[in-house]
Write a protein that binds this DNA or RNA. Sequence first.
DNA 1: AATATCCGCAACCGCTCCGAC
DNA 2: CGTCGGAGCGGTTGCGGATAT
Length: 319
Amino acid sequence: MGRPPCCDKTNVKRGLWTPEEDAKILAYVSNHGIGNWTLVPKKAGLNRCGKSCRLRWTNYLRPDLKHDNFTPQEEELIINLHAAIGSRWSLIAKRLPGRTDNDVKNYWNTKLRKKLMNMGIDPVTHKPVSQVLSDLGSINGLPSTGNQIGLAANKDLMNNMLPTRTEPSNPMVEQTQEEQAQFWENQVQYQVLASECVQPNVVFSEAASSSSSSSSSNLTQLSSPQQSYNCHNSQITPCSSSFDWSDFLHGDSIMWSEMQQCDPQRVMSSSEAFGAVACGASMCEGRSNSGDSFVDGILDRDSEIRAAFPELLDDAFDY
DNA sequence: AATATCCGCAACCGCTCCGAC
DNA sequence: CGTCGGAGCGGTTGCGGATAT
């Protein structure tokens, strides 16, 4: 039954590391390389948990680590990647040679987040704070749509607006870890490309020059316009985006299959129209102050779909 | 000079996933 | 098949130095 515990947690040393302890780790790794960390404390003569040894090595002792300040280019890359994939520090750190996820995370929490807020940019959504507040006002004022498409739309929107540890767009579809990793890797690749396409130093010089947070002077301007839509920072996608609105509706697989059986042709046209409307709405949102919004587009299409499938939607989802 | 407050960072905590037993 | 540890990750904490009062 299982393995023995890696260490006696009540008797291992905790807290700051001494130079002597560091030297022991370094000596051990230089002689034996990195292997089973649970064996390291015993073999290196340390009264520490193996997990603590691994953290000390990866976050501080690794010879390839940089210990100097972050460069403006690194800052810019962190901001762009955070806008694309959220707080996936390990993925972001992989793009910054010599930096650890802990480095990046600390730098974000202590410097970059405040820097963005001082510039009037919400560090979570990477939108101007004024726009975030107005978006929240719109969402709070939404009438109840009364069905799952409306709920799914709002949920999806919120997932995009709040980039926590969200998974790829369709949670109902089984995805392997490799596929999910590939998804985020693609996001990273895109943001790297986007950041390479823009002129350097646009970020802070432009945003810092204006204390008001107009939509024309924020980080969202960095992204290449031909790239795909990303709700985190209001990037706009052409409607030929790879995003598939049928995937969106597939979020409720039962309802989707019922709709398909009921009338596949209607499902297809509704799905396409749904995508077109929402895509158009998102374009309007990107132009800002147009009076239309992404949410409005979804709600409009929601009404159309409700009208198209009253037998499936109204009874079950009016509450 | 003494104290309070702020800030940065190293380290820890708790969780998930996977594989060993 | 269930339990447990290893590894990796993101979030949080707490210490120590810097700065303000």
